[in-house]
Each structure stands twice: as structure tokens, then as C-alpha cells.
Amino acid sequence: MSEKLLNTTSFALSPLGDSAVVVTFGNEIQYDIHKKIKIFMELLEHEPFVGFVECVPAYTNLTVFYDPLVVFNEQKHKEAGISPYEVVCSNIKKKLQQIETNKKMTHRTVSIPVCYGDEYGPDLEHVARYNDLTTDEVIRIHSSGEYLVYMIGFAPGFPFLGGLSEKIATPRRSSPRTTIPAGAVGIAGMQTGVYPISTPGGWQLIGQTPQTLFLPNENPPSLLQAGDIVKFYPISYEEYKEMKEERR
């Protein structure tokens, strides 16, 4: 990954309901935007404003959750017109000016085994057909990429990965499945990811990993963090069974 200087921060603020504000740094999946989000998140967590609860990074924005009552009670003059949202926005604007633009970022690499296709990848053939490829070509393309973890979300420990080849991009299913098994590897538009727990979801499923991604008794409770690099490698059905057994 090349290191570039961050230019002066351009951003937009918007409310997510009455208890969160979304700080948007751009509108596409881009390394520089990811870097700004990560740096800003660390800055906020290091010196939180009064009423700060937590923040959640995504591809192009950082959502900052706060408690409007704590923010309100902190104000010296509690006039009826005071808006906790406006108070939080002005705190955030001040913080944004402190972003250090030449900070270096390091990335950890994590390799994840995947058993592709058949019962473990019910949508592999659909993804191949949609892109005019064979299923083997889809597997080769998917397992030769390097993917940056832009965010963890949707389910505990679920990584949203950037770097999927356009050649295998496939839109989400029109109606989500009601259950998807833990370990399922999927594609949604230009995104790819792994389901750490059984949950409903709308992604196209191409394979399955025996690796555990959600670790509820550890802190942090997720194998992957925003900023990691993930590589996938194909394994056979037998290898999958063996690895699954070892993890018991």
C-alpha cells in the first residue's frame, strides 16, 4: 500500500436519528478515505467529548454515537432551544482540525482457508454465470486477491473487505436469506466477506471457512480489525472437515 499524504480534510456531517452523527469523508471505497477515518476514530476514542458513547467506521464514513441527555446536561445554559446534535457537531469539527495528515499506517496480514462451491457455496454457479466465467475461474480470482479490512460490522467479527476484482462482482440477492451458516464466504456488489455467526443476510455465498472469526470471550472479540490485510486460500472438502475437527 502506498503512503500518501492526506490533503486537508473535507467532510460532511449528518444525523443518524437523534443519538448519532455520521462524519463522511468521501463517496467511494478508497484507501486514503479509510486512512482518514481510522486516524479520526483513534483521535476521538483517545480524547472523547462528554456524552460520547462509541464510534463505528465504514468505507466512507465514521458514525459517532452519543447520549443526547448527557450532552444536554453538560450545557451551562439549558435553554429550550439547545440541540445536542449541534453541540456534538461543533465538538467534532474542532477535533477534525487536529487530524495529523502524515501519520504512517501499518497493516497485519491474516490468511483464511476457504472450501469453495457445492453445498458450501450455493451461489458460486450464479456468480460464475453472472460474470461469464467458470466456477474455477471465480475461485482463482477470489483466492488470488489481497483484501483490506475497511470495517467490521453487520455481525460480530464480520469483515468488509475491499479489493474484490470487478470480474467477479455480483449484486446482492433481491431478498435476504433467513439463515446463513457461520463461516460462509460471500460477495455483494464490489464487496466480499465472511459470516462469523449464523444470521440472515443478502450476500451471494461462494464458499465456507473453518476459521472462527468471532471470539466473545476475548478482547477485542474479533479476529480481524479494520486495517488488516486478508488473503483467502482454497482447501478441499476433506481439509475443511479436518480443520473443523481440530477447532473443536
Partner: peptide, 14 residues
Amino acid sequence: LSEAVSNGSIQVPP
């Protein structure tokens, strides 16, 4: 693009 949701977000699938 996926982004944070919160308690009470009303999403509309296709």
C-alpha cells in the same frame, strides 16, 4: 455501501 445503522433505522430492501 454498508455503513453503521442504529436502533430504529428503517431499511428498505429491493
